[in-house]
Write a protein that binds this DNA or RNA. Structure first.
Length: 600
DNA sequence: GCCGTTTTCGGCCCGACTGTTTTCAGTCG
């Protein structure tokens, strides 16, 4: 059984236990264990086979280790199967409806036999919900709104699509008088590959400004519906279905609030624990001396004297920690590293010296080679690899050997013109070295869609899977391993084939693929297109752990798409990568040395 | 169920908002 499957089952077990009214700490323990497995970076099954104890994994104790072992060896989770007989798994879907939590689900199931969103809708129409304990007219309305939102917005929105919405909204709100700070927090700030709700955080210098921004927030033209509004918190749903929350906080607590609302939840929990270890108390209002007094009402500031809170750095510093970049705040060891002053010097967009994956009008790109090169020059790149598709992708106009030869004739001309032989040389693309490459299809049997002769002539050979996604894991792994073992291959592009929100990764043993890449001097790509972002952050961490070189490619099919590089850098940062881990953060000479694999 | 220079029991992050209540439970983040 794969780690992903184990994660899914552990989460399901946690959810069902929660609905069943089980001890909330036990529920959390299973969620923590699921998270631990998800970010493990190695196969649990392999670990079990090797006899390495699972209890070494933080968050996995004796009980869960046993359950994981059973899953790994038998492919089953008997306790979950038993629980599912008492609590139907379809109830989990009900808790995804906003306004419906575990307690209400339990009540719906026990008293009315409701076990699905569809049945809930039916019961509301039939007037059966009124009279249930805790359900009045307003609650009923909230549940109905929740159901509408559920249908409209199942799943999350890709980061690159949220940007288009968020940036203009921010501009509007920043213009409100009295707003001194406005930031996006949440998973958007952590640069997760997809975003659920958008969390905005504002600091104002007067109470009147706080009312003004709340008003401007609700009055934004793209707002379809105001979901809730209070003195410090408001929520709206935009016309495209995305929910946006606004919090207004005092300026001197902005850092603590930004920290808190950026999360992740796991990071916050861990950070608060660090605060407690220092006999301090952390909330979104600041870091306080003296613990909260349980006998007094928990009003802001009642917890003691504030010792930090204006900036995030101030809070971290008071806890003896270096400032943690938002991308790392996932409770994957960043606090330990911050305490040891050992956080990685994360790669930045400015470190990227070239783009190693782009298309032109020679296959399915929309811009010519010259246009792409000029755009790369404008970005200050030292080099760029032209990597059009091969002939197997007929619909993209992929290149066969004859067409590739014609492309090279054009490249000869382009390069001759670009050479600064006189003052009339086109300044635009001067300075960008073109690497002649191709994105060659991996055929079903693992052979490559281009002759060896041409593979040898290319400066850089990317290989990738664009077909036969449904092969078994063993077949897919063997296919890809065979491809990267070809002596002329340099980069395995978008290694899992996923398309966010559209297509799951195909079944493949990445550990085996990484081993083959390492043995053959092949790099794995992080495809920076925000539809793909493949490899994922967790898989990138695993690649780095095995010593595999990573490349970054925009996979641009137009000049505009070259800019998606920033989303790729986001994910590399989330994976703790530094510029030293990334091939195209190195100077051209080093890149060439890597591509030659030590040959001539 | 997990964890441990407060270790094998007794903790486990914290607060806002809403609605249904008459002092609080549920939900959310």
């Amino acid at each position: 059984m794969s780690n992903a499957e184990m994660v899914r089952l552990l989460e399901q077990y946690a959810d069902l236990n929660e609905i069943n009214g089980e001890n909330s700490f036990k529920v959390r323990a299973y969620r923590n264990a699921a998270e631990a497995v998800a970010s493990l970076g190695e196969s649990v099954a392999a670990r079990v086979e090797a006899g390495e104890p699972l209890t070494d994994v933080k968050g996995v104790g004796k009980e869960i280790a046993e359950k994981l072992t059973v899953m790994a060896t038998t492919g089953r989770f008997p306790q979950l199967e038993d629980l599912a007989k008492k609590v139907p798994p379809s109830l989990i879907e009900l808790t995804r409806v906003k306004g419906v939590g575990p307690k209400l689900v339990q009540s719906l199931w026990r008293t009315l036999g409701i076990a699905s969103v569809a049945e809930l809708e039916g019961a509301i129409l039939a007037g059966k919900l009124a009279g249930l304990p805790g359900v009045g007219a307003k609650k009923l309305e909230a549940v109905q709104r929740g159901i509408e939102a559920y249908h409209r917005n199942v799943g999350r929105t890709r980061l690159g699509e949220v940007d288009f919405i968020v940036e203009p909204f921010l501009d509007k709100l920043r213009a409100v008088p009295g707003v001194v700070r406005l930031e996006v927090a949440g998973s958007y700030r952590r640069r997760r590959e997809t975003v659920g709700d958008v969390d905005l955080l504002a600091a104002t210098n007067a109470d009147t400004a706080s009312a003004a921004i709340t008003h401007a927030f609700a009055a934004y033209p793209e707002v379809a519906e105001v979901l809730g509004s209070g003195e410090t918190r408001s929520s709206v749903r935009l016309k495209n279905g995305i929910q946006v929350d606004l919090r207004v906080v005092p300026e001197d607590a902005f850092g603590a609030a930004l920290l808190y609302f950026t999360g992740s939840k796991a990071h916050n929990v861990a950070l608060r624990q660090v605060a407690l270890d220092h006999a301090l108390h952390l909330s979104e209002y600041g870091l306080f001396e003296g613990g909260a007094d349980p006998d007094r009402p928990a009003t802001p500031g009642s917890a003691g004297r504030r010792v930090a809170g204006r900036t995030e750095e101030e809070v971290y510093a008071r806890l003896g920690l270096d400032g943690v970049p938002p991308e790392l705040r996932e409770d994957r060891g960043e606090l330990v590293a911050a305490a040891a002053h050992a956080l990685p010097d994360l790669i930045t967009l400015a470190d990227v010296r070239g783009d190693l994956h782009m298309h032109s009008t020679w296959s399915d790109g929309r811009a010519t080679v010259v246009q792409m090169l000029e755009a790369c020059a404008a970005k200050g790149y030292e080099y760029a690899a032209l990597t059009d598709h091969s002939k197997a992708l007929a619909m993209t106009g992929g290149l066969d050997e004859a067409k590739l030869a014609r492309q090279w004739e054009e490249l000869d001309e382009v390069l001759a013109e670009a050479r600064p032989r006189s003052s009339e040389a086109p300044a635009g693309r001067a300075g960008v070295t073109l690497l002649r490459g191709m994105e060659v299809d991996i055929l079903k049997d693992g052979t490559l869609d281009l002759s060896d002769e041409w593979l040898e002539r290319l400066d850089i050979v990317l290989v990738s899977v664009h077909s036969h996604f449904e092969l078994s894991q063993a077949e897919q792994t063997a296919r890809v391993v065979k491809a990267v073992s070809h002596p002329q291959v340099n980069v395995l592009a978008h290694p899992t084939g996923r398309v966010l929100g559209e297509r799951d990764p195909y079944a493949i043993d990445l550990a085996a693929v990484f081993e083959a890449c390492l043995a053959n001097g092949v790099a794995v790509e992080h495809n920076a297109s925000y539809q793909r972002l493949d490899l994922s952050d967790v898989n990138l961490m695993a690649a780095k752990a095995r010593g595999v070189t990573v490349t970054l490619g925009s996979d641009a099919h137009s000049v505009d798409q070259l800019a998606t590089m920033r989303y790729g850098v986001d994910q590399l940062r989330r994976a703790w990568l530094t510029s030293a881990d990334v091939l195209n953060a190195r100077p051209l000479a080093e890149v060439r040395r890597f591509l030659r694999k030590g040959r001539g």
